[in-house]
Nucleic acid binder design. Structure first.
Lengths: 241, 241
DNA sequence: CCGGTAATTGACCAAATGGTCAAAAGTGGG
DNA sequence: CCCACTTTTGACCATTTGGTCAATTACCGG
């Protein structure tokens, strides 16, 4: 009835500990893992990211992920327990990557440099890690069943803090009056569209893929448009046109 | 191997004509359908739109769609043949809705009024038809397996035409120098984010849903930011602040 | 009221899929 | 070399799911 097919989190069943995710038993005695364990988990999560990005939660199959990761299917369950848990691991990984770029938005920074840096970093992420962006987008698109709580607990406070910085800049007359929270929505949208909807962009531009040149052009466009929108245009030493 | 699970288009099997989609046999003899046929198709497509939007192609099930439409499952196949065909019908429907607002961007129009109207219409659509936007987004997100051809054949020419109009306005010095095609990407992204990622926006804003007030605020923000970014700001009779 | 067509529907099916298991293969200390 | 433990796998389910069918019901001209 819910929508997402998979059964519930399922806590029953023991399965040799080795969670490494939830509980933190970690190896204690011997068997130094040669770093193999983490390497395996990483390989699986990365493969899962690609597959989930390409087909969504429902469309992705464990068999496909296993193949992409180069391990037999039962290993996925050995390491992550269930499809849902693996999916969640992918999302957590993305979230960390996601929040980081906002670090440059601090009250002591210079508005234009800070915003420009933020936007450029977001654009860079869109080009270099499109899969992560797509998994995230897919999750939101379908109502964020897995991370609605995270949005409220983690993203909201972060935006509140960063928006406060923007509001202060505005109050000090250092940039135009924009709605600081909606500004973030617009920046996220404008930048991540190059990851999420790359096919559409390529199709419209008539490119097979977004090459270096196209990436630069896109970046300059977004940076320019938004900075101007924020009243932060002006002579920059760098390029422009 | 492909990704999308469903088997291929499958042309085999006859199934009583009544395609109504591909071939155009349409009713010829008697049986004036009381308008029932189209009503049924419409109900099914609308239900499918909701379900596909909520779970993606892979996650949606025909049974769910049937239930949402209030008809038994075989009817879906009777009217649309396959899950893929139904999905395609939903996408086609969306495309039409999608292209329409661009009508207001014509060379004879006044730049600011035209762009503002376009953005406002896009925002309105995001708020009133979020499902359509989400299905479309989902399709793009997963590589547009179903409509890559459509993007190139329909969307690309449209953007080419509209971008030419913008370029002309720029050449005439009536607006700032922006990359006209990327401007469309940004507008689409900034507006549709309110449909596609509504959960995230609500979570950040601390709202249960985007009420009228939030919608207006969002609209004014996007309109203001982009117009300013295009060098089209200026005294408007209306609001601001 | 009859006959043929369109539409409806409950019952079914083969394939795909998430998940399980038990046996096998490493691994390293004693 | 043995033992306790972790990993790795191939084989195997139970369920779900897209799709099919044959039978039934509505519909309408004659």
């Amino acid at each position: 009835m819910a929508g997402r097919p998979g059964r519930e989190p399922r806590s029953g069943g023991r399965r040799p500990q080795a969670k490494g995710r939830g509980g933190v038993p970690r190896r204690t005695s011997r068997t130094l893992p040669r770093g193999n364990r983490e390497a395996q988990e990483k390989a699986i999560v990365e493969a899962a990211e690609r597959v989930f990005a390409g087909a969504g939660f429902g469309g992705a199959t464990m068999a496909e992920i296993a193949q992409a990761a180069g391990v037999p299917k039962p290993n996925l369950h050995y390491y992550f327990g269930s499809k849902q848990a693996l999916y969640r691991a992918v999302l957590e990984r993305t979230l960390r990557e996601w929040l980081e770029p906002a670090d440059c938005i601090v009250a002591t920074a210079e508005p234009r440099a800070a915003l420009e840096g933020y936007i450029r970093e977001k654009m860079r992420l869109s080009f270099t890690c499109p899969y992560a962006s797509r998994v995230w987008a897919n999750e939101l698109l379908h109502g964020a069943p897995e991370l609605r709580a995270t949005l409220v607990r983690t993203l909201r406070p972060l935006v509140r803090r960063k928006a406060a910085v923007i509001d202060r800049w505005i109050a000090e007359g250092r940039m135009a009056e924009v709605d600081s929270r909606h500004l973030f929505f617009t920046i996220w949208a404008a930048t991540q569209t190059y990851a999420d909807f790359a096919v559409q962009i390529c199709a419209v531009l008539g490119l097979a893929k977004l090459d270096r040149v196209a990436q630069e052009r896109a970046t300059e466009h977004v940076v320019g448009l938004i900075l101007r929108g924020c009243g932060l245009a002006g002579s920059r030493p760098g390029r422009r046109k």
